[in-house]
């Protein structure tokens, strides 16, 4: 089971496309995002963000995701491996799609650094949209924005590590001999 409620997220994703929306802040730092039940919604969020950025250049989108998983020593090894795989794949896909957009259109994807031994992050998953000059005055939004401003709390996700050419063996198959 997951604590993520699609009914809360989907209307906000729809509103992301509204012309009056000029900024969005999306926090997805729960481990539930890496589990199967949330996979479809997670994909839809990614697609909605990219669709918005492809069609508009007057919106700023900040995303906060995990840089590394919190202390998960209570999880069975198989589940931990699955979470790590899902996390690695998700971040790769986020980075790869960043490369398809010019820099001024890219989302600002911040990876939250979880310290060693930390069992959870003190952030609430949310999607908050800004239509005017100020953000809604909610506790979750304030905490997320505070985290983004805190030096050393996050590290940006870029497409720098994405090998656009693919593996070297594609060009020279003999390397696998």
């Amino acid at each position: 089971m997951t604590s993520i409620d699609p009914a809360h997220w989907r209307p906000k994703l729809h509103a992301l496309q509204h012309p009056q929306t000029n900024a969005a802040l999306i926090v997805q730092c729960s481990l539930d995002w890496l589990r199967s039940p949330a996979e479809e919604l997670r994909g839809d969020i990614d697609q909605a963000v990219l669709a918005t950025l492809l069609s508009r250049d007057d919106i700023t989108i900040d995303r906060l995701v995990l840089h590394n998983l919190p202390n998960t020593d209570t999880l069975p090894p198989a589940e931990l491996a699955a979470l790590n795989t899902a996390h690695r794949d998700w971040l790769y896909r986020l980075a790869a799609t960043q490369t398809l957009l010019p820099p001024h259109r890219q989302a600002h994807i911040h990876r939250l650094i979880v310290e060693r031994g930390q069992r959870s992050v003190n952030l609430t998953d949310m999607i908050e949209l800004r239509a005017g000059p100020t953000w809604p005055d909610t506790e979750a939004c304030t905490a997320a924005r505070h985290t983004l401003r805190r030096p050393g709390a996050t590290t940006p996700l870029t497409g720098y590590d994405v090998d656009l050419d693919g593996p070297f063996g594609d060009a020279d198959p003999s390397v696998y001999l």
């Binding site: 479809e40 994909g43 990614d46 697609q47 669709a51 492809l54 896909r93 398809l100």
Partner: peptide, 19 residues
């Protein structure tokens, strides 16, 4: 071109339906 861009994003960014 717009459809192509959307398709490219889907290919690179979307994992497909679960299972």
């Amino acid at each position: 071109a717009e459809q192509a861009m959307t398709a490219l994003v889907g290919v690179l960014g979307h994992t497909g339906r679960p299972a």
